[in-house]
Amino acid sequence: MSALLEVSNVSKVFSMGGLLSRHQVRAVEDASFTLEADRPEIFTIIGESGSGKTTLARMILGLELPTSGEIRFRDKTVSHRVGRRERLAFMGNVQPVFQNPFEAFNPLKRIDRYLASTARRFLKLSDLKAIDRAMDEALVKVGLSLAEVRGRFPHELSGGQLQRCAIARALIPNPPLLIADEPVSMVDASLRMAIVNLLKALRDDFGVSVIYITHDLATAYYISNRIIIMQKGRIVEMGDARTVLENPEHPYSRLLKASVLSTEDAGAGKLATDAEMVRTASALAGAERSRLAERPDGRLVRVYEGA
């Protein structure tokens, strides 16, 4: 078994403030996980704002360098400080899908130019017919077609269609790995599941691994193989998605699950959050000396010394 993506002991520290009041923010602390090459999966990173999930994604995409630790993609260190050729080779293998489909394409430009540029650059196509074919193939994978998209401006399509175009563009180089940062949080409710189901189909039918970054536990449960839950830069629980989410062990994971709004007793007005739970979970965010401990069911849970 070879590793597709290896994240080992990665930390990222940002220095904030001016000359006098400089303080450091640990956006990501000692994160490690591995994605295997021959087993496509949806690997979900769950966290609230400020949990470091987006920073982690940016580091995997090579947009940001880790302060310590290393990220390796197919045994090569990921970095943006490499030659253009090497960087393009990496981009051909790891493609992003971003949060806001309405921002994914320049509103003043036609959408197909991004797809054409991707095909030209990564598939090294120059023949117009071949470019069209590559674009159409990718669009068909996401349930659209070139005929529907060609010549359109972003405002002519719905958020769901735009996000599908963005995914289609990412799929053109046939990358083994997609990094999807909150891909559905800005998509309308009636169109959201189409995108989520699409990610699932990419894994099942085309063998694409997806790192799915979200704050939504319900969709994470619905599509993920494995998940990690991050709290203030630290991984607090990691393991099989179903196991972890059905029965979370770490207090923070439990709090997140308890905060998911249920529709099963709609109209009953049950909202109260257990204040004790919030206190316990937030107390652990700053706790020193902790490590990830393995549990018999395969999950890793952060335990705190002296707690």
Binding site: L157, S158, G160, Q161, D188, S190, L191, M193, A194, V196, N197, L217, A218, T219, Y221, Y222, R242, L245, E246, K257, V260, S262, T263, E264
Partner: peptide, 16 residues
């Protein structure tokens, strides 16, 4: 979608 339920969720086709 709901935690504890893995059945396929339907998606609505078309656009508003």
């Amino acid at each position: 979608p709901r935690i504890g339920d893995t059945s396929q969720r339907p998606a609505l086709e078309g656009r508003p």
